[in-house]
Structures are given as C-alpha cells and as structure tokens.
Design a protein around this nucleic acid. Sequence first.
DNA 1: ACCTGAACACCGTTCAAGT
DNA 2: ACCTGAACACCGTTCAAGT
Lengths: 188, 188
Amino acid sequence: MQDTKERIMAVARATAQAHGYGALSFRELAKAVGVRSASVHYHFPTKEDLGVALARRYREDAEAGLAAIAEASTDPAQCLRAYVGIFRRALENDNRMCMCGFMAAETDDLPEAVRAEVRAFADANVGWLANILSRTDGRDRSVHEARALAIYAAVSGAQLVARCRGGVAAFEAIVESYRASGLIPAGQ
Amino acid sequence: MQDTKERIMAVARATAQAHGYGALSFRELAKAVGVRSASVHYHFPTKEDLGVALARRYREDAEAGLAAIAEASTDPAQCLRAYVGIFRRALENDNRMCMCGFMAAETDDLPEAVRAEVRAFADANVGWLANILSRTDGRDRSVHEARALAIYAAVSGAQLVARCRGGVAAFEAIVESYRASGLIPAGQ
DNA sequence: ACCTGAACACCGTTCAAGT
DNA sequence: ACCTGAACACCGTTCAAGT
C-alpha cells in the first residue's frame, strides 16, 4: 500500500488529465483515497500546493521518459514517433489528455506557481524536441527551437481536437498529415 | 440596451472563452448583467440549455465569418491568413481562446447536447478549410479534408500553447513554422 | 412576459481541535 | 505526524409570488 500522499497525487493526476485543475476537489480526492477531505489538506495545505506538486512531478516524469527515448535511439524520426506515442497513450487511457495541455486552457484560473510549472513543462518538451531536431542537421539552435515549439503545439492540438472528435484514430490521422506536410520529420 | 437574454449570452461567451464551460455560473452571469440568478433561469432553464445556445450561436457566428472570408478573396493563402487571424484575435482579446477549443478539453464534463454542438463547430471549420484547400488543386475531397483537420488541430494547438507561453508573438511564430513546413499553404 | 426572494441540497475549502 | 468535525461561502435549481 502506497502512502496516502502518493495515492492522492496519483488520483489527482488522473482526474486533472480528464477534467482539469478546476475540477480537482479535495472531497472527491479524499473519497477515492479513503480519508476525509481535511486530511488531504494535511498533505497539501492549499489547492495551489497540490497543483504545484502535481505539475512538478508531471514534468519530472515527462523529462525522465523523454531522456529514455532519446537514449534508446539515435534516429530522430523514431524518437519523434515515440514522442507522439506519449500523447496517443493519454487518449487511450480513457480519453485523457496531457495534464499541462488542459492546464494551458485554464491559465487564467491557475495560481502563478502552478502556471510557472506548466510553462516549465512546455519548455522541457520544446528543449527536448529541439535536441532531437538538431540531430537532423547543423542549423542554428534557434531554427530547431522554433520548429520544436510548432511540433509541440501541433501535437497538443491534435490531442485536444481528437479528444472530442474522432478519438485515437483522428489523432493518428492528424499526426500523419503533419508528417506528410513535412512539419514532423518522418525519416526516409 | 440589448435585451437581457442577449446580454447574458454575450457575457457567458466571454467567460467561457476565458474560463471554460465549467466556470459558467448563473449567479455570476446574473451579477454581470444586473439581474438575479433566478432570472437567468427564466431565459435558460438549465445550464445545459445555456451551453447549447452558446455553442450553437458560436458556430453560427463562425460560419458567417468564414463565409465572408471565402467570398472576400479567391486566393487560398489569403483566406488562410484571415482564418488564422480569427484565432489570433481571441488571444488579443484578453488572452481568450476559441470557446469550442476550451470545451474540447472539457468534453467529459459536457452534457451530450453541448458536446454535439462543439463537434459541429469543428466540422464547420474542417469543411470550410477543405473548401479553401480544394481551390489549390483538384485532388480528392478526402485529401483536402484530412489536411483541413490537421490545420484546424494545429492552429487550435498554437492558440492553446501560446495562451500560457509567449502570447500572440508565440502564436504568430508557431503559425509561421506551419507555413514554412508546408502544413499551411502560404502562396507563392 | 419577465423578474425576484427564499429555500433546498449540494459543493470545495479552511482551521481549530483531536489522537 | 496524521486525521477530523464543524463552519464558511459558494453552487444550480425550484417555486410561489410579484409587476
């Protein structure tokens, strides 16, 4: 049995990926974990504290996953396929989406500390993508970063749109269009 | 002075574009319009009724705007620039986003009738984009529809990402990458 | 036709108090 | 250290009553 704090974070992440930060409720989290809502406040004094912990952990996990992908293959196209796979798996997991993608929509309702973590998540994605793209040619870092941001935005949008229209199949079709148009390097 | 129902819809739209469907509250809407929450229920018996009316109107307005763009110019690249401009203006309007983009994130919390309207909005966008793309060449409709969906998703994602990271400038940079990569036809 | 006050059953959140 | 009861300020909804 995990400790209460970890179980709260796990349930909270799954909830935020399906319903957003705004839908995070101490009462429901407590019910799912088997304690009272006031007990959740013992571990996370405010909702902001929970949000910051969630977003930071989410980014750390993402960074670890991305590092593993970059080490598993030197082929940029293959790394990018694995990258897209992360977003696809969120949809496969009961139509969930990237937690920070949802939070991006909720920016105006986020405490500043949470928003900062959401930005850091985006930065980590863009930085990693730029590193992968720099394997394809020796152009300036700024060129790869611009394209990296575009890929991150496009894949996020594919996930968002597919979530309410077409599901995983639509997501795959959209990403295939990205490859066909040249936005995402597809190799060969 | 507009009538109360119209003023409620205007405030609700602006709110939903900034905070989502979930943040729509009859009490706050009432306060903004200067009536009591029970009066809002006179015009929209339930929140679902309000959501459906909002999303339907949003789609109708979008369809009218898109039709005007398609008639104002025969040049696909110019039409696509105008299309992107719609999304940019949402960001310029106090960092708001497409209402149906926000609602796409909230799919799981939407009454089915509202979700259907959100899908209809996406369909209208994709259909219009496919019409514009079909002006560029005579390939099959299905080819243009696939690309249209990809462009809709990519522009939605650019708006979502820019909303919490870089604002309008980031949005423009991302869209420029879409054009440079060939995802969005840029003319010449 | 349009609006309202009051009530209902709920909600997330907080915090002083328990063990 | 960990948990809780009770209170607070909300919410959508209903309905009888006003104009």
